[in-house]
Simulated scan of single mutants.
Amino acid sequence: MPLTVYAPASMGNVGVGFDLLGAALAPISGELLGDKVTIAFAEQGIEFEQTGPWAHKLPVNADDNIVPQCGVFFLQKLGLTHGVKLTLEKNLPVGSGLGSSASSVVAALYALNAFFDSPYEPQALLALMGEFEGQISGSVHYDNVAPSYLGGMQLMLDTPETVCDAIPHFKEWYWVVSYPGISLSTAQMRQLLPEQYDKAVAIDFGRRLSAFVHASHSNNPSLAIEVLDDVLAEPYRAQAIPGFVQASAALAQMGMLTSGISGSGPTLFTITDSLAKAQQAQQWLSEHYANQDGAFTHICQIDALGTREV
């Protein structure tokens, strides 16, 4: 029987935790914000098709598309010769800062693992996802893959025993995420960052991340907001995202608790513990930031479920 898997959008860095912190997103509307992959048996090889609002932005040739590549990768790992058909429903824009490629990879590998009776346990499957992601991007970064797969807010540990571990999230927070309708290359946004950082900046980064983790575990939202500031990437990326600086200032005046860049952008996130303020921010962002074709703004909370069959 065919099965369909959904992998939610994710927010890398979460401002304070560059490459080390990630969170899965769930719109409060109930909409599924993420990619879906359907798997079924085929006569031979990897059959592939893609649908969805962003399918036209992806390679048509299966050899160049990461979902059928996932199929080849997984089957080779297990020495399987079965034919499978993979269908991608591409619901996340490419280059959005919402973990678009991670969502596709996670949905595909989760679906393959479930379809073949789960030969990989969760941490091993996560490591496999990271290995594949590293092959296509040149380096392994789990801050999108891990939360999209496992849900919640995930802190990257990258030890021999454990890839990541969940930290508590503030259930009263609303995360308004706004995609302005343009795409930015992650590689190019990384090139904006300096090769080396001043010692004081490195210490400040460590202080803020450790304080945020402490605040999360001790249920101290005011401390978490106080330290939730990106001192590594945002100072170099903010000006490269059209309208981001102006939007951040307007959201602060509106009374939002803090704002930042989701992943490497251009999606913006802003936080509040008031649904009314979240709705006000959503309306402002829809009018002034996310107002191009394909743009969207969602009021979200953290998706605690992660990837699942639907």
Rank of each mutant, 00 (worst) to 15 (best):
G34Q: 02
F74T: 00
L126G: 03
L128H: 03
E89S: 09
G52P: 04
Q69K: 11
G83A: 10
N65Y: 00
G97M: 09
L80W: 09
G95L: 00
F74D: 00
L58H: 00
L128Q: 08
A114Y: 05
G99D: 01
V84I: 13
E121Q: 15
V106D: 11
E31I: 06
P119E: 10
A55V: 01
L80A: 09
S118A: 12
H56Y: 06
S96F: 01
P68A: 03
A24E: 10
P27H: 12
E31T: 03
A107P: 08
V37D: 08
V60H: 02
A42I: 06
P27E: 06
K36M: 10
E121W: 09
A24W: 13
E43R: 15
I66A: 06
W54N: 06
L109T: 04
G30A: 12
T51I: 01
V106C: 15
V106L: 14
V60L: 14
L88W: 10
S103M: 05
V105I: 14
G130V: 03
P119L: 11
L86R: 09
D35V: 09
F116K: 03
N91W: 11
S118L: 15
S29E: 12
Q44R: 14
L75E: 02
V106I: 05
A42R: 14
S104L: 08
Q123S: 01
C70S: 08
E133I: 15
A124C: 04
G71W: 06
P53F: 06
L109R: 05
F132T: 09
V105W: 02
